[in-house]
Structures are given as structure tokens and as C-alpha cells.
């Protein structure tokens, strides 16, 4: 996802002379092509994220389109108030890109995990929150974000995730993309867990459970049409995210249900629980600990589905 972002932003820099890229001292060499294309429009703002967001606001107020890039926890928690006041309150055209979201940088510890960023950003008035599912979606999301008139947060994984789409999909902010059709269960997958959602669906197939997978890439604005459809058509709807079950896409859907939308389906939210990890290990290890693996998810879905069926 990271390389897809770097490649797309470099192309966009050639097309649009208003685009300005700000980085907080990460991405060594990653942006060499951008710097070639637009040497006057790349700025390393140093390890000073709050100032970077303020700077972006000033650029945007002057008619430019700033794209701010650094590691997800730093570009969200560290400068939440700058995002809220400088970008959202002024409703400024701007793109905030967090790389290494969720447990991508698990081995660096919870300082580098971002399992609460969706929760914090989606409550800010006016901002849009997009979590692309693979490299194709990253490119499409970035281009779509550039067309928005207000702030957009794009939540990236790391580099080298498997591609799920075969080609760049039709992409629209706030409109989920069906990847795989099924009859019993629908997994709404948000962000970098899309390959995991696909793997779970394959496993469920073997257990004679027909599973649909939807890339539910936009957390805000919520795709009401898709939610209405899937909660009407399926027996079970599952949200899957590499993010806390508190405040993320699972919560967003739970809120949607609680606001009185009619549902035939049962609902299951899968994400990380309310704790920090206190041990070393990479992303796959951390995912297993939080139950974000096929071995954990498939039985959970099967159990919830059989319970649902028993009740009917």
C-alpha cells in the first residue's frame, strides 16, 4: 500500500501543480520520484506533526492542496487538535495519510500501533475516513480524496500486502465494493484486513457456509445503502477491522443499527479488544493475539451463524 501511495502521488504531482506533499521525516527515498516531478512541492517538516498539520492548513487556505504523510498514530493522536481546529473547523481541502495503520508496525510496540485512530477521527465534523483494502484501492482513494472540498483521512497498511482486486475497481468515497458474493454471511472488511477477510471466506466455504466479502473502505460517510441491503439479505453480517471494536467500523455499524434501522441479520463485530500489547512480535503474531486470524474468526462466525439459525 505504501508504494502504491508513493507511485500515485508522484503521478498526481505531475498532473496537478497545486498538490503539495508534507512528510514528518519518514519515507526516505520513498518520494524520490515525487521530488523529481515537483521539487518545489515536497517538504520534510521534521518530527513535528502538529506543526505539519497547521502548515497544511495555511497552504490549503492559500489555494494549494496539501497531502500530509507520516505513521498513523503520529499523524492522528499526536496532532488531533490541529486536525480538528485547523483542518476540520475551517473545512479545508486537505488529505491526511497515515501509514502503518492497525498492527502493521506491531514489532515496534503500541507506540506505533494505531487501533484507535478511526474512532478519534470519524467523530470530527466534516472529515471523511477511508481505509483502502489493497494497493489498487489506495490509488483510487487518493485520487478521490484529491477531488473533495474538505479534509480526508486515508488509513494505509504497510508495503507488500497481497492484492485482492485484479485491476483498479470503480471507486467512490462512501460506496462499498463487493469482492465476493455469498448467501449466508457477509463480511464487511475495512482496510488492510481485506486479504484476511478473503481467506476466512474460503475457509467458511469449506464448512459449507457461503460467504460474501465487501470492501467497506469508507467508515465516514457510512454507506447506508450497502448496510440496508446486507442486513436485509444475510443471516449474519460481520465487520472486520484491524482496529479496536470500540469506535471503529464495528461501532459505526452498531450505531447505525441502534438508530433504528431494520435488520434481519445478526451482527458480529471483529476487531481488537480494549488493551495494549505488552510483548514483542510481528503483525501476524499480534493479529493472532487479538484474534484476527482465520483460526479465530472462522469458528466465531460459524458459531454465531448456527446460533442465529437455531433461533430461527
Amino acid at each position: 500500500m505504501r508504494n502504491a501511495f508513493a507511485s500515485e502521488i508522484s503521478s498526481l504531482a505531475r498532473e496537478n501543480d497545486k498538490l503539495v506533499l508534507l512528510s514528518a521525516d519518514i519515507g526516505n527515498k520513498l518520494f524520490d520520484k515525487f521530488k523529481e516531478a515537483a521539487p518545489d512541492r515536497f517538504f520534510n517538516c521534521g518530527v513535528a506533526e502538529a506543526n505539519m498539520i497547521g502548515t497544511a492548513a495555511g497552504l490549503s487556505m492559500s489555494g494549494l492542496i496539501p497531502v500530509c504523510y507520516t505513521i498513523a498514530p503520529f499523524i492522528t493522536y499526536r496532532c488531533l487538535e490541529q486536525i480538528r481546529v485547523d483542518l476540520c473547523y475551517h473545512n479545508l481541502r486537505s488529505v491526511i495519510v497515515g501509514v502503518g495503520a492497525g498492527l502493521s508496525y506491531a514489532s515496534l510496540g503500541p507506540t506505533h500501533h494505531s487501533l484507535e485512530d478511526i474512532a478519534m477521527l470519524r467523530v470530527l465534523p466534516g472529515i471523511k475516513v477511508i481505509c483502502p483494502g489493497d494497493a489498487f484501492e489506495v490509488k483510487a482513494a487518493l485520487r478521490a480524496a484529491m477531488q473533495e472540498s474538505g479534509p480526508v483521512y486515508i488509513r494505509l497498511g504497510k508495503k507488500g500486502e497481497p492484492l485482492v482486486h485484479k485491476q483498479e475497481p470503480q471507486f467512490e468515497i462512501g460506496r462499498a465494493i463487493e469482492i465476493r458474493s455469498g448467501k449466508d454471511v457477509c463480511i464487511l472488511s475495512t482496510g488492510n484486513v481485506l486479504p484476511l477477510a478473503m481467506a476466512c471466506a474460503e475457509e467458511l466455504d469449506k464448512a459449507m457456509i457461503s460467504c460474501s466479502v465487501i470492501s467497506f473502505h469508507t467508515v465516514k460517510p457510512l454507506d447506508h445503502d450497502t448496510l440496508r441491503n446486507v442486513f436485509r439479505e444475510f443471516s449474519l453480517v460481520v465487520t472486520l477491522e484491524e482496529h479496536s471494536i470500540h469506535g471503529g467500523v464495528g461501532s459505526s455499524v452498531a450505531e447505525w443499527l441502534a438508530f433504528g434501522h431494520v435488520s434481519r441479520a445478526k451482527f458480529l463485530a471483529i476487531g481488537t479488544d480494549d488493551r495494549f500489547l505488552h510483548e514483542a512480535g510481528g503483525q501476524n503474531h499480534a493479529r493472532r493475539i487479538f484474534g484476527l486470524s482465520c483460526e479465530n474468526i472462522v469458528p466465531k462466525i460459524a458459531a454465531k451463524l448456527s446460533l442465529t439459525r437455531a433461533m430461527v
Partner: peptide, 11 residues
């Protein structure tokens, strides 16, 4: 000041 910096940079 950060916002002003951004405006000055835009200039």
C-alpha cells in the same frame, strides 16, 4: 504560527 507558516510557504 504554524498556519501562518503554511501561508508564507504557499507564497
Amino acid at each position: 504560527l504554524p498556519v501562518g507558516l503554511g501561508m508564507a510557504l504557499a507564497s
